[in-house]
């Protein structure tokens, strides 16, 4: 995970204030998996002294490029790229490190994946869509946004994905929150993955727990009889959990030393950069939801 320079290939706006930045970083692109992050050394005068974490939205090993989605700065005359990227032109190099953290774990037997995202957090699940489609799994993406204008463009998604949208103002798709859509699809899904604001994730965690009780042993991957106990937080345990989430947090060292990026876990705090950013939902303590 040593840092190295990567070249900016492309940068464009994909929605109001949302920018897609493509980098040529073959070493990271070939090893990145869904749910992992990129640690970007953003350079601003008098700015952030740390690297900023961004979800790896897409990674193409053959061309060595990967993309991240970053929030720009919106002003009276439209929006501009994020301050640290505004002076970068294609061809410029920036110091990237990654991939940071642990990936989302898909059970090899899972056929139906339900992805739930709200707002820019879609970037955390974007790579999972590519991986799942490549492996021949069916993917339903439930997406929530404030208005039709800020909905993630369907042109950026593979055709194989069933894309269901909810907007808060009802300007596109279901009028309401993305959580309203979950009930229709959770019975279909073998596994689900979510990213978004903490209240959404906490609510989904509750739903997932209810589903577990309802379906009992019929969930995927439950072995009959003995076998060694599975360590909570291990890839095996995550593969067998119905809901996995990706947390967004400021990550300082990405080495697990600074203890700055902790999140409340079910048994003590967990580090987003080492144990996360992908978690099985029941590993975390969501507090009173």
């Amino acid at each position: 995970m040593r840092p190295f320079g990567a070249e900016l290939v492309d940068r464009r706006e994909i929605g109001p204030g949302q920018w897609l930045l493509a980098w040529h970083a073959p070493a990271i692109a070939s090893s990145a998996r869904a749910g992992q992050a990129l640690h970007v050394r953003t350079v601003e005068a008098g700015g952030m002294p740390l690297r900023r974490p961004y979800a790896i939205a897409t990674a193409d090993a053959s061309s060595g490029t990967l993309t991240i989605q970053a929030a720009g700065r919106s002003g009276p005359s439209g929006s501009s790229p994020p301050p640290w990227a505004s002076s970068l032109r294609p061809g410029d190099r920036l110091d990237l490190a990654g991939p940071v953290g642990r990936p989302l774990e898909v059970d090899p037997r899972a056929r139906h994946l339900l992805l739930i995202a709200e707002g820019p957090a879609i970037a955390n699940l974007r790579l999972l869509i590519d991986e799942a489609v490549r492996e021949g799994r069916s993917v339903v993406l439930l997406y929530g946004a404030a208005t039709a204008a800020s909905v993630y463009p369907s042109s950026l998604l593979p055709d194989e994905v069933e894309y269901v949208v909810a907007t808060a103002d009802g300007s596109l798709g279901h009028a309401g929150t993305v959580a309203d859509l979950v009930f229709e699809y959770e019975g279909w899904a073998d596994q689900s993955f979510a990213a978004g604001p903490t209240p959404l994730l906490g609510g989904l965690t509750q739903l997932a727990a209810g589903r577990k009780q309802r379906l009992g042993v019929a969930t995927l991957g439950r072995k009959r009889g003995g076998g060694r106990p599975i360590q909570p937080g291990s890839p095996e345990a995550r593969r067998k959990s119905f809901l996995q989430v990706v947390l967004a947090q400021t990550v300082a060292c990405a080495a697990g030393t600074c203890l700055g990026c902790v999140a409340p876990g079910a048994s003590g705090s967990v580090r987003v950069c080492r144990e996360g950013p992908s978690f099985a939902a029941d590993e975390l303590d969501w507090g009173p939801v």
Partner: peptide, 23 residues
């Protein structure tokens, strides 16, 4: 020591605000 609850870092101009509590 368990340290302080999350979040423990905040971005400020030319610096960082840390609330680790000596975990």
């Amino acid at each position: 020591k368990a340290g302080q609850p999350a979040p423990r870092m905040a971005e400020v101009p030319a610096g960082l605000l840390l609330g680790m509590g000596p975990q």
